[in-house]
Design a protein around this nucleic acid. Structure first.
Length: 426
RNA sequence: GUGGACGUAGCUCAGUUGGUUAGAGUCCCAGAUUGUGAUUCUGGUUGUCGUGGGUUCGAGUCCCAUCGUCCACCCCA
């Protein structure tokens, strides 16, 4: 035991009990994305470290202390991706699919951040994200947000609240940021340690402080929405109208600030109070400056990412059922000749009945032992092939969970019974 | 990175003020029923007590370190 190798901290194994629900969610995500005309991209897990420094921001926690970075053999610094947007923009510039085009893209995959693990926060975690480019107006912002709402509907998730805000254009945001720093600097001695640090890293974040002592100070601070430029204000107002028009409920949260440097104008989060401290299930916004910042031609962009682990946790607390993956049938084989005949019988049945999940006994065992395994497998039906059946050219059929008599039938009629079982079940 | 709680069979957990050979349930295997599961009965396997040090005649129990899990801060999906 002392020599046992454990998984890396914060990196979890997903076992068969969980993968059913994961596949269900993945299927729904794909269907909704594709239903909105979004197309899938699969991007590398590793990028040059420089990409993340330039996109996420030098002084963010992610870049400063949470990246898994290492030196490649050619001495270049590489990093496991901490988020998906940067790589997507990089790929867009590299393959020229942003220039004068309006792609809508989605992806699903693992991200890596070296944080202290906690409920809903892991070092390897999975995000499903969408990114769209080349569209300036609030209509695409609204479509994207409405699409996320459609996801929750399709998945049957409830209790998520949509919060939206506008950070303004890059220029407006910087101007406001300076005003805010100026304001808080006057009261620096009253700030707590965290907020004094935020003064340098992300002053907008101070507005979101959980410290009750700062409440009155924060309330006296300059208001972000009052410092919006005209263009951003109009954009935000039109977005709110569009959301209302398609029946997506939202609340404006003036303190909503995303941690990544590249956001502009629209930002939004879907939050829940059912997951403890990590209540943000999905978040995103507009990032009109990033493509240019990374060397492409100026291109507006909007996107969001949702945390798979958090979404799955929410589904679990709300009692979502895992996708059915128990076998319909367990094939019992006793004796050498039955074992020989079993493989092709199993193949025949699987070929004749689409969707059939047939589990064939392997590893021998008495009738009793095999029936035990059949029961444990969860199968509805046990098929029995022994010397007796082989002689008659039949297969025994026993219903493990229904009150129906056991019978012996030729293969063709067994197939009909199984077809019935498949269509009754899932 | 900071603070707190916790690590005992595969799983869920007991284990007294430190005292012989560490327990229960469950799971698994076999038998009762030589071709029939889930119920019942009988028997059986399962552990470097997270790891490494220390205190002690003696440590699952006390102390230190370390690894891990969980919760919160911070941060974020």
């Amino acid at each position: 035991m002392s020599q046992q190798i454990q998984a890396v901290r914060g990196m979890n194994d997903l076992l068969p009990e969980q993968t059913g629900l994961w596949r269900h969610v993945e299927r729904v995500l794909r269907a909704v994305f594709e239903g909105h005309g979004y197309r899938e991209v699969r991007l590398p897990l590793v990028e040059k470290t420089e990409l993340f420094r330039r996109s996420i921001g030098e002084v963010t926690d992610i870049v400063e202390k949470e990246m898994y970075s290492f030196e490649d053999l050619n001495k270049e610094s590489l990093s496991l991706r901490p988020e998906g947007t940067a790589g997507c923009v990089r790929a867009g510039i590299e393959h020229g699919f942003l220039h004068n085009q309006t792609p809508r893209l989605w992806y699903l995959g693992a991200m890596f951040r070296h944080e202290r693990p906690q409920k809903g926060r892991y070092r390897q975690f999975h995000q499903a994200g969408v990114e769209t480019y080349g569209m300036t107006g609030p209509d695409i912002d609204a479509e994207l947000i409405a699409m996320s709402a459609a996801l929750w509907r399709s998945l049957g998730v409830t209790g998520l609240q949509l919060q939206i805000n506008s950070l303004g254009t890059v220029a407006a945001r910087h101007a406001y940021r300076e005003k805010l720093v100026e304001y808080f600097k006057q009261y620096e001695t009253q700030l707590d340690e965290d907020s004094r640090r935020r003064l340098l890293t992300n002053p907008l974040r101070i507005l979101d402080s959980k410290n009750p002592d700062l409440k009155s100070l924060i309330e006296g601070a300059p208001r972000l929405l009052e410092h919006l430029d005209e263009e951003s204000r109009t954009h935000f107002d039109r977005l709110k109208n569009l959301l209302a028009a398609c029946g997506v409920e939202f609340v404006v949260n003036e303190r909503l600030v995303r941690g990544l440097d590249y956001y502009t104008k629209t930002v939004f989060e879907w939050v829940t109070d059912q997951l403890g401290a990590q209540g943000t299930v999905c978040a995103g916004g507009r990032y009109d400056g990033l493509v240019e910042q990374l060397g492409g031609k100026a291109t507006p962009a909007v996107g969001f990412a949702l945390g798979m682990e958090r979404l799955l946790a929410l589904l679990e607390v709300q009692g979502s059922q895992s996708l059915e993956d128990t076998p319909h049938v367990y094939l019992i084989l006793v004796g050498e000749s039955a074992e020989r005949a079993g493989l092709s019988l199993a193949a025949t049945l699987r070929g004749q009945i689409p969707g059939l999940r047939l589990l064939m006994n392997c590893g021998g065992g008495s009738f009793k032992a095999q029936f035990k395994r059949a029961d444990k497998s969860g199968a509805e039906i046990a098929l029995v092939l022994g010397d007796e059946e082989l002689e008659k050219g039949a297969v025994g059929v026993k219903f493990l969970r229904a009150d129906r008599p056991q019978q012996q039938q030729p293969v063709e009629q067994v197939a009909a019974l199984l077809r019935e079982a498949v269509s009754n079940g899932s």
